[in-house]
Amino acid sequence: MTTHVRHLRGLTIATAITLLVALALVFFYVPFDANQGFIQKIFYIHVPLAIVSLVGYVLGGVFAVAYLRTGERAWDMRSYTAIHMALIFSVAGLVSGSIWAKGSWGHWWVWSEPTLVAYLIVILLYCTYQPLRFSIEDFERQSRYAAVFAIVCGAFVPINFMVVRLSVNYLHPHILNLEGGNLPGSMKLTFYTSLLAISLLYATLMKYEMAAKMTRIETRRLRRRLLGEDAMRPLGRSAAPQ
């Protein structure tokens, strides 16, 4: 349990500082965008959230490969936590993207923005991860199937983005380059600082979540040793690895 907590304090401090610096850069340093104006400042929260959550999904797949190779429960836990946190981040990313669409195009949802649409599909797919875990009783099988799901869906994420992008380009010209290919220097600096801040936040929360889960498991183990199998409370509605 201590191994998970060891770096948590340093990581938390680094995250807090980077996040504050990023916010300061966004609101006091970087100039308004020439085309979009003030509303473009959503870019600095939305795009990092989206990128980090997508990387998180793929990371969940990578951890799942490690689980299938080694069979160690810790990898299953990492895969679960990576996907769990990515899901939370991507909901925040989706909401901020929707607000941006409303602000700049007047609609809460824009089908002609392929990144947003592909993102929604990925979220809908990963929403089934926890129900899937939950509906398999045997723990070993649950971990194995969840790992297979994480690998397949992790590989699906980039493919899905390509196909959806093709489908939209086919019908409409591309309105806005969300990845910000050629940004001026000040915007680039702000964007990368935000990206770093959100990545650190992801790492911190993931470590935090892991530590909490491990502590929970440790408590249950203690209870079992102390009071025997009969004293175990039934597990609550949780799809987490046990």
């Binding site: 916010l23 509303i39 959503i42 929260i45 939305h46 925040a92 602000g103």
Partner: peptide, 11 residues
């Protein structure tokens, strides 16, 4: 625009 920017960060 301020409303939307604030909204996104508040969310």
């Amino acid at each position: 625009a301020g409303k939307y920017v604030a909204g996104a960060y508040v969310v």
